[in-house]
Simulated assay, not measured.
Amino acid sequence: MAFKMLTENLSESGTKLQEYIKNSAEYYKLRLFKHAMKLSTSLINMLVLGGIFMLFLMFFSFGIAMWLGRILDSMLFGFFIVAGVYLLVFLLILFFGKKHIDKAILSKFSELVVEDIEKEEHMFDDDVSFEDFNEKKLPNENEIP
């Protein structure tokens, strides 16, 4: 009789282990999907906002170039001055700002991942410990028929 109970408990443990593995795989698939969606929505937002800002910058640059052209009596000089300013900004970013931009991007995306991990950790912060869980879920020796 004890052997029969042991085999039943072992087979039940095997099915529970299979369910646990299946649920864990599904959980990690959902977690991966969640992180991929956050990344893609962040990238899409940056592209949309960046595109709108580029349109603004383009029209603003044309306006400044034309205004400088009228002041200097040569549209060509106005456009060359604006292009020179952009070249100067590009070179400054290339030589001095690349590390800062990389750091800002990494910190932003790391912040998204860390926030998710902290939220997941706090989901499991309740008053029940692992030992309490085991004591409540597993039958003791007196309960086995």
Rank of each mutant, 00 (worst) to 15 (best):
E131G: 03
E118C: 01
H122G: 01
F56T: 02
A25M: 11
I52L: 12
H122V: 03
E26V: 03
F109A: 05
A36Q: 12
L39E: 09
I81L: 10
K99Q: 10
S129N: 06
D125C: 04
E111H: 13
I105L: 14
A25D: 07
E121S: 08
F3D: 08
V113K: 12
G97I: 00
N142A: 09
F59A: 07
F60M: 11
E141V: 11
F33I: 01
T7G: 00
S40N: 10
F33S: 01
K108I: 13
S61E: 04
Y20A: 12
L76V: 12
L10W: 09
L47I: 10
G97N: 00
F80W: 15
K38Y: 13
K22Q: 11
P139R: 07
K34P: 00
K108A: 15
G51I: 03
Y28N: 05
L43Q: 15
K136H: 10
M123D: 08
E120N: 08
K103T: 07
K119A: 00
D102M: 08
E19Q: 14
A25S: 08
Y86T: 01
K22G: 04
L106Y: 13
T41S: 14
S110W: 14
F3R: 10
P145D: 04
F80G: 01
A2H: 09
E8G: 08
K38I: 09
G97T: 03
A2R: 09
G78R: 01
L76S: 11
E121G: 01
E143D: 07
L39I: 06
L43A: 15
G14M: 15
F79R: 03
